[in-house]
Design a binder for these strands. Sequence first.
DNA 1: TAAATATATGAACAATTATTCATATAGAAA
DNA 2: TTTCTATATGAATAATTGTTCATATATTTA
Lengths: 97, 97
Amino acid sequence: MKLLDEDKIIDLSELFKIFGDSTRIKIINILLDEELCVGDIAEKISATQSAVSHQLRILKSSKLVKYRKVGNTVFYSLDDHHIKEIFEKGREHINEI
Amino acid sequence: MKLLDEDKIIDLSELFKIFGDSTRIKIINILLDEELCVGDIAEKISATQSAVSHQLRILKSSKLVKYRKVGNTVFYSLDDHHIKEIFEKGREHINEI
DNA sequence: TAAATATATGAACAATTATTCATATAGAAA
DNA sequence: TTTCTATATGAATAATTGTTCATATATTTA
């Protein structure tokens, strides 16, 4: 396993930084199961619409979630199978300590 | 796959927060290959001894690294196989986008 | 067109955090 | 014991960042 160069190091820490916030983890957690619109996400995780929208923007720009628009409703879902895997590996770790 | 409860959510985001810093990722990156002492880590990642020591304390208290003392030298290595796996999954993700 | 609904966004504020610098601790060597 | 080396740590600073509040945008409905 070759070591990472400086650029990849930055990219990788940026990626994990995205996972390192409880609001975003909550969003990812519920999107593991189903596609949801912004309002429903906010309700399910007990956060404001604004806070969720801000965090979805971050998740979107990092390619962790994708979306589709239906009318004026926007449905979000996870974008990449690695997300589930990273999430799951983290979960395994915290379940063992 | 059952959804996480509030406590696990916090634990999980705390875990990823640890990975979300480039100095710590650099440390983890070089510890993938070999056990190293603090001074060598600092030299290899071009950071000060103090900065590395501070970050090692965080990695240690999160059970991501373990250490053994030999004289006044302290050797650090990765503590858990999940660390490599989480790291590798993240790496796969950034290599695909 | 006007009102209602869903989402996005900018600014401000508070809180967290990584680094630096100075120094403390502890073990090894002289 | 004194000096040197390796590591740890506390305080201060600077920078980053998540939330809130107000408001903008866009789509639907009346």
